[in-house]
Design a protein around this nucleic acid. Structure first.
Ligand code: MN
Ligand code: MN
Ligand code: ZN
Ligand code: ZN
Lengths: 147, 147
DNA sequence: CACTTTAATGAGAATGAATCTCAACTGCAC
DNA sequence: GTGCAGTTGAGATTCATTCTCATTAAAGTG
């Protein structure tokens, strides 16, 4: 549980950035649970305990967490950027139900291998990818049939 | 070359939507070339010939083109939604250079097959997917090495 | 522990893509 | 042609994200 914190601290040091209280608070909030999140969620969550952390600082800190490799930008939802952990999580893809908004995750290994092969062909050096598919989840398919 | 127009007309009729002049102008502009585009690009392009088509109408029409299946929403670029043709184009994925913004396309067939298998396992009915990888193109890799 | 320097922060203003409003206009069915 | 519901243009509005700037605090120094 402390590993992320150390990685983060090292990252900040390597970039000559200060290890400040807000940066710690934000990072800890991010790793309090393992759900996808957007900046607004995070802001609300943090505000419950720390009334003085500003939205601006969260917007400034999230890209640092991305750059550190602890989290990544994921699919967009309701016109907000959303993020998810990378540290401690397998690569995976998302199935997003256009009807109810449900997000289903699925393993990725075989797909990842293929993508790497394709990238190699194009001499492209991948740092990060996102795969999101839209469609209907099981429930919504059933509900559609009835109506 | 007229095929898209007919499909579009049929789509509009099937939805009880009128086949109006602005809707035609916008659709023709979209198919004037085969590049990825965003609404702003499209607006500028259309304005050269038609001074009276409003941005609002373009924003209203693009989702119709998406729903008709002629185009799809693709990756996001410079915080704008971007779109690309689906009609007459193979499924493909994008490699986006974070350094110079270059977009490289690559065939998708094997990947698509795997994804379909995964979706089937989750009983998810895919209507559309996007795969975008960020990283460095060949040129930018070389330039980075030097500096 | 002061002291100093410089980056970081909070609050609110600004930006800008996307959406909404509403009076004027137009397809299109009759 | 007439009528009417759907559509449009122009500008206002929304809202996620970014920016500004006066104030604060990290972290090195002695
Ligand atoms: Mn996920
Ligand atoms: Mn493409
Ligand atoms: Zn659903
Ligand atoms: Zn490049």
């Amino acid at each position: 549980m402390k590993k992320e914190r150390e990685l983060y601290r090292e990252f900040l040091k390597s970039k000559d950035l200060k290890f400040t209280k807000p940066r710690l608070i934000i990072m800890e909030a991010v790793f309090e649970n393992h759900e996808h999140f957007n900046v607004d969620d995070l802001y609300e969550q943090i505000r419950k305990k720390h009334k003085n952390v500003s939205r601006a600082t969260i917007y400034r800190t999230v890209p640092l967490l991305v750059e550190s490799g602890l989290i990544k930008q994921s699919l967009r939802c309701e016109s907000k950027d959303i993020y998810e952990h990378t540290y401690g999580h397998e690569n995976h893809l998302h199935f997003i139900c256009v009807n109810c908004g449900k997000i289903i995750e699925s393993g990725f290994n075989d797909v990842a291998e293929l993508i790497n092969q394709l990238a190699e062909k194009k001499k492209f050096k991948i740092s990060e990818y996102n795969l999101g598919a839209r469609g209907l989840c099981e429930n919504c398919q059933k509900n559609k049939e009835q109506s």
